[in-house]
């Protein structure tokens, strides 16, 4: 049995502390996303909220795959679609009611939130995740020199297998639904262009 890298009590405290920071970050961004006056700024706050949820997926649900999907599809895809829709909807769509949304200096806030995420991600990736993995291995009595490399591969393999066997029908239906949604939205917008 290997010794713990850091005492388990301190490790648990660290886990709760990081969770506390993440909760403040995520719920604060969510609150700002529904409360700032400018819809454009609201979408930008939504991105930070989604990044916070992605970090919860990685650190507390133990899934790097969900982090990647969350960032690519949600934070990178849907929000950009929303920004395009706002840009195409004219200036009156930018603010919910007349009057500027000078709730705070938004440039400073965005820079702060982005910096907080990047610094947090850097620290977590450089220090905490290595510590946590080694701590986990040490607590299970596995030598960090030869960790069980197959764990991730087995998980991804199981995921792929279940997606095409047990949940195959659901995934197929989902594919048809997404195709229908894509064609439907293209038809909706294209029809209006032809009418104009």
């Amino acid at each position: 049995m290997m010794a713990y890298l850091i005492p388990p009590e301190l490790f648990e405290l660290l886990e709760y502390f990081v969770l506390f920071i993440l909760v403040i970050y995520t719920t604060g961004s969510a609150y700002l996303a529904v409360s700032v006056k400018s819809v454009y700024h609201a979408v930008l706050w939504l991105i930070f909220c989604l990044l916070g949820v992605a970090m919860i997926f990685l650190l507390y649900a133990g899934s790097a795959l969900l982090l990647v999907i969350q960032i690519i599809v949600y934070a990178g895809g849907i929000t950009i679609l929303m920004l395009f829709a706002i840009s195409l909807s004219g200036k009156e769509a930018m603010f919910e009611s007349l009057g500027s949304g000078k709730l705070m200096d938004w440039r400073l806030s965005f820079a702060g939130a982005f910096l907080l995420f990047m610094v947090g991600a850097y620290i977590l990736s450089q220090v905490s995740s290595i510590f946590w993995t080694l701590q986990d291995l040490a607590s299970r009595g596995i030598d960090p020199e030869f960790p069980d490399k197959a764990i991730d591969a087995v998980l991804i393999g199981q995921l792929a297998e279940q997606m095409f066997t047990l949940h195959g029908g659901t995934i197929l239906t989902l594919g048809l639904l997404v195709l229908g949604a894509m064609l439907g939205s293209v038809y909706l917008v294209k029809k209006e262009v032809e009418d104009v």
Partner: peptide, 20 residues
């Protein structure tokens, strides 16, 4: 994953309706 894909479809249709 299914929920995220559904959300993407919903957002695409919703934004199409908003533009229309």
């Amino acid at each position: 994953i299914i929920s995220i894909a559904l959300a993407a479809a919903e957002a695409a249709v919703g934004l199409g309706i908003i533009l229309s």
